[in-house]
Structures are given as C-alpha cells and as structure tokens.
Design a binder for these strands. Structure first.
Lengths: 221, 221, 221, 221
DNA sequence: TATGAATGAGTCTTCATTCAT
DNA sequence: TATGAATGAAGACTCATTCAT
C-alpha cells in the first residue's frame, strides 16, 4: 500500500491489459487457492479478482457466478490421471510390494504434493453444499482410484506375494493416509506451530512398509 | 474475539453449569449439526435458532457472536477423554495387538460413531479461518491422542511383540483411517448412493490387522 | 441535510419503530408513487424504503424481491370495484345518457382522480416486461370495465334512447378518454409548463355529451 | 446531457446527413424498438448494439451515452408532419365531417400504424425521467397537432356544419382514441390473447362517426 | 428472559462506459 | 473506424446483530 503509493508515478502495472486467453486460468488458480484457504463461502469474489490481478467485473465476464467459478475450479483441477496410470501399471514388471510403493509415490508427486490436494480438501469441506460435485468426484476420482489400487493388491494376491484378502476393503487402508495427508496439509499443517508432524513422503513409505510387513515381530512366527 | 473460551483449561470437568433452561446446550447442538453439514460461513444464525426452537434474538442472548457460538461448539464437543483412557490403558493386561484393537474400538464408539466426528470435520474445514481453534485442537486432542497410541506401540516394541520402529511416525498409520472415516462420513458419505463404501467398524478391524500382520504372504519368509 | 444535522439533537424521529402491521402498506404506497413517477426499473429499492421511512433491509423483510413489491403495488391498488358498481347500476332508473355521465363521474372519483390512475400508467408502461401483470389487469379491470360500459350502452339501445350500434366497439369511445386522461396526468401533465391542458372532469362531461349528441348541427337534419 | 439535439429546430428538414455507413440509423432503429418494448432503463446497451449488428463499442462511438441515444431515438422519429398536413388541409374542399375522417386516416397511416406510435408510448412512459423530451414533444407534436384538429373543428363550426362548441376542449375527444390506440398497441395489445379487442381503423371511423352524429336516436329529436 | 422487527454493512452481480488493440 | 475485453460504480439482496417491546 504505502510503498506502492509513493512509487506509483513509475506506472509499472499496465492497467487494462487485454488477455482473454489467460484470464480464465488465472482466475481459476486464484479462486482455487482462496477457496482452499478460506472455504467457498468465506471467499469474496473481489478477493479472487484481486488475486488474479483483474477487477471484479472481469471475473463475471468469464464465469456466470461464484458457484460457476467453484465448479470450474473443481473440474479444471481434477485431471484425469487414471487412464495414463492404468497403462503405466499394466507394463509394471516388479514385485507387487514395489508396485504399491511406486503407486503411492506417483500419487504423492502428482496430487498430494500439488495444489490438487487442496481441491480434495475443498470437496470434502463443501460436499454437502454441492452434491453434484461430490458425485462428480466420486465418479471421476474415487472410483477409478480405488479400482487401480485394488488391481495392484489383487495382482499380489494372484501371484502369491500377498496373502488372501478382501481387496475391496483393504484398499481403504492405502487410501486413508492419502486423505489424511491432504486434509492435514491444508488445515492443521497450515497453522503455525504444530505444523509438520511428519514428512509426508517418509510417512507414505513407512505406511506401505507397515501394510506389507506388519508391525508384528517376525521371530514370533 | 476473546480467546478465553478456548484457552481455559479449568472448566473441562463435567461441571455442566450455566444450563439455565438448557437453552445454550440446545443451541450448541443445533449449531454443531448445521456447521458440520454446511460449514460455518454457510450456516445462518436464524437456522441455528430455528433448529434449537428459539428465536434469533435468544441466540445472541447466550452467545456474543456467531464466532463465539462456533467456539462453544468446538469446546463443548471435545470432551477430554484421554485422561480417563490413559488410566484405562495403564491397567490393560492383554497383548499389544489386542490393545490396539481395543483402542480403536474405544475411539470408534466414543468419537467416530458420535457427533464428535462432525466436529473434527469442522475443525479441518475451518482451521485456516480459526487458527486458535486449530491450535486448541492440536493441544487438546492431537497431542494426547498421538501420545496414547504411541505408548501402545512402544509397549509392543518393549515387550518384543512388535518389531523395532519409529513409533512417532508409525502412529500416523493408526490415526489416518480415523481421520479418513470421519471426513468421509461427513462429506461423500452423506451424499451419493455410492456413499457407504465400507462398514467403518469392519474396516477398522481389518486395518489394524493389516498393520499388525502385514499383507505379505507368511510362507514367503 | 444541513438543517437536520443542526437540529438533530432534538431527536424527533423515533428510530427502530416496531410497526409490523403498517409497514407493508406504507411500503406499497411509497413504491406505487415512485414506480409511477420514475418507472419500475429506474426506481431503487432504497428509495422506496427511504420514502416509507424504513431501512432497505426492512423492505426485503416484507417483500421477497422488487418484482414482488411491484406485483403487490398492482394488486393492492386495483380494488375490485366492479362488483359494487354493477350492483349500483342495476338499480339505476334515469336515462341512459345520465347513466353514462354517472358512470364516468364514478370512475373519475374512484380511479382517475386517485393514485390508482398512476397504476394504470405503470401497467401500460411495463406490460411487456411483466406479461402476467398485463394479463391480470386485462382480466380484473379491462374485461369487467368494458362489460359494465357495454351494458349501459345496450340499455340505451334497448330502450330506444340510443340508436342501434355495435356496443362492443363503441365502448372504446368511452374508455379512450379515461386512458388518455390517466396517461396524460402521469406524464405530460406532470411536466411543468404545458401541464393542465384541460380540466379532466369538464372534459369528461364534454366528451360524453359529444358522444351522445354529436357535433353535427341539429338543424342540418 | 446537452439538450442541443432536442432543441435544435434547424435540422428538421430531411437533411439526412451523418449516415456514414448507415450505422447511426441502424442503431437508432434498434434502440427505438427495444426502448418501446422494454423501456429505457430495462434495455441494455449491448442489446441495442447486437440488434443493430455492431459491437457495444461502436454504439458509444456514435452516441455519447445511452441517454444521448434515447434523445436521438425521439428526435429522429418525430417527423414534423404538421407543416405538410396544414398545407394539405388548407386545400381541402369537402365537408368538415369528411375532413375529420380524412385527418384521422392520415394520422393512422403515418403515425398510429407505424413505429412512430411506439415513440409516443415511450415518451409517455419516460416523460417524468426526461422532462426536456416531454417539453420537446409538447412543442413539436402536441401543440401543432391540437391546432390542426382544432382548426378542422372550427371550420365546421364556421360553416354551420357543426354546432357551436369550445373547440379547444372538444379537440381532446379526437386525440383521446389516438393515444388510447397507441398505448394499447404497445402494451396490452402486445401481450395476452385478448389483445386485439378492436380493429384500430374500424374503431377510428366508428369513433369519428359517433362524435359527429352522437349516439342519440335521431327520431327522439 | 424472550421475541422478532428493524437495521445497515457487506456481498454478489449487472451494465454503462472506456480504451488498448 | 470498429472491436470487445476490462472497468468500477451502482443496485438488489442477505444476514449478523441490535433493541423496543
């Protein structure tokens, strides 16, 4: 505020830039970050516009309403990663334990450690206010994701590497920490002090190891 | 405004004072349910009053502001269960595996399967807007909780039942599914048909079993 | 502004008066006058509230929207006069010429010379934007009105006082000046200078006389 | 803003300048139709531009403001027909009754049955918001028009064809149905089915007949 | 204490107008 | 000239909070 005012004669910021192509993306990014931070209802339209470097009016030039913007935030940030991932795993030749580790790393690098993780928090927070979005997420992310993980577990069972199990249920033991990490990161983890209890990537490895080998002392067998 | 409500450790005991006509309690219950459903910002004061069966004016007779009500919802719904649980577990004589199962059951019956689970969703959703509440939750719930679970793991390690591990990290493999279940229940689970993917209690048992024994086929050793 | 400020210590205006019964009526009256003056779209909600002596919020306490208020203005001001008038005319015993004069006076005193006349201007101006209102007016006012006037003409024809005619068409020669007077009054007539071209009541009498006797010199027959 | 457009008497003649590419004319026509349909305030500048087949920016290239466009709509659509008509009637040799019929037909063909009738509705609707326009219309149309009609009546009186009368008042009995027809056409008439109550031209003839001969049965004299 | 009518600051959204291209 | 993206003041409507009853 203050320094800008003093320096404003420099006229650095070009007002009224005409960048039709870039606007929607910038607005969606700004909205995503603010919605994740403060929630949908607590974010003001002007804030989004300001963060995107445009005026309030411009926002409504590209999105019919705040809700419309919300839906754009969700759809634009839920990349359809699973088809590619499915292909990738079809060619996987290592052990199923390695495959599980690899899947988790993949997820962490492409979702957990990216702004997409904020979207998940957002969806969980607002699911009841936007049931269509919840259904959309269920269909586009949850179901493909569980199928992929389930198929990895099944591969291990089929090969004799893993013991018999109900993979449709065990799969949630793999999903749980991903949800946990995302929720934590965008709530507790973003709040000062207690912040980083664990290093996510380290935790993921530890967790998968635990799931595979168990905590039980091996000499007890 | 005043963080007195949140910071006062003194009145944790079931003093249950101030329930003149039980009005405040009814308001807090109504507010809790609505905040969990729709979020803090999206819940209107009139709705809370209406659900509690009083007028809007009465709400503000008992709570200085909507934020005040929010803080009351949090504090009144976070019972300090850990002192009692700690005592209980000191006397536990079974195996550490059983102890872990028992701890999870205890949590499910007293938190996961009660309205308190909604509070957790609420805190995660609103943490960034209410940092004091996040800190309060961290201090009053997260830390005692992780300590308790860690001590169970350590007991297993010490007795030779569990293999050596960094309990400060493994503990999150136990916490993850609890967070997952609570978040799911109050978002996806409350929406689409595909909702109830798993039976929570069954999943908890399966998960603990998995953590203890691992998925690896035992004959491979 | 200025004098008020200076005198404001007198505190004459009682703020926050609680008059639930009177509010809607006052708001409708204020809205009617402003809508008639400036048109629906050009009238701001705050103006209406201010003229009614309440805050903007109060307006929306009683009417869901500006359009809702508009509809209330129309319905509340189009009293169902015709049933009573119909009864009155059934008992009329004078000549049909007198009856026509009487009908026009009645209309002038109860509609033309009251704020209701402004409503008519309003309806004509906004008919295309509010087709339901146009239909409502057609059904509630135009049709009963033309029927009444037609029956008077028919009475004259039946008694031999009037010559044969198509009353369904002649009736508009009686309605025309009423519409004219109302439109004039609330447009040209309200604009300074040229204002009062004719005295409405005098014009009405003259017009009816003309319709009855014609302008043709009687000795020409 | 500037009342130049409205007050300049000079350019009444069909100079028809400034039609570079005919754009202004198309804009004025589009604006006229929309203003008549929806009112001035309820018509958006983009709509006008779109209907004229140009961009919003172009509109403001030709007209300084929406108000300016409104004034252009009025002035461009109020042809000064009266000088020509006055000349025409000076040479009229038939009866004054025929003259009246002829005058009404002339008006119907040149005003009532053309888009100019919409302008009249517009002026009546917006008179209070645009007093200069009301004054302009009064001066350019109302006064010349009443003078012309009055002179026809006076001609009849002078020739003994019509009985003695106050022509300055009777004239409104002739004007009334014209106003009525125009208002009706652009409001009620454009809405519900019941719309076309009368055939305008037929009504005009009937009305003039009525005014000339009266409804009174002739044998009663 | 309880009510709910009243308030007005705050928010979304529109749209006349501007201006870089 | 012509465009249409960008602006921001203005307006409809909401809702936490107050206060007369």
């Amino acid at each position: 505020m203050t320094s800008e005012t003093l320096l404003s004669h420099a006229d650095q910021a070009p007002k009224r830039e005409r960048r039709k192509e870039a606007r929607p993306g910038e607005l969606v990014t700004a909205a995503r970050d603010l919605f994740v931070e403060k929630g949908f209802a607590a974010t003001r339209a002007d804030e989004v516009a300001a963060r995107a470097g445009v005026s309030k009016g411009t926002l409504f030039l590209y999105f019919q309403s705040k809700e419309d913007l919300f839906k754009a935030v969700i759809t634009e940030n839920i990349a359809n990663l699973f088809p590619a991932w499915n292909e990738e795993f079809k060619a996987f030749s290592g052990s199923s334990a390695d495959m599980l580790h690899y899947a988790m790393d993949l997820w962490w690098n492409n979702v957990g450690n990216t702004p997409a993780s904020g979207i998940v928090k957002l969806i969980f927070s607002e699911a009841q206010n936007f049931p269509e979005i919840a259904a959309f997420y269920q269909r586009e992310v949850v179901e493909p994701g569980t199928h992929l993980l389930q198929s990895i577990l099944q591969r291990g069972v089929d090969s004799g590497e893993f013991c018999a199990m109900d993979t449709s249920k065990s799969v949630f033991s793999i999903i749980s920490p991903m949800i946990f990490l995302m929720m934590w990161k965008h709530s507790m983890g973003a709040c000062a002090a207690s912040a980083n209890i664990v290093d996510p990537q380290e935790f993921i490895h530890l967790h998968v190891d635990l799931l595979i080998n168990g905590v039980r002392a091996k000499n007890t067998l």
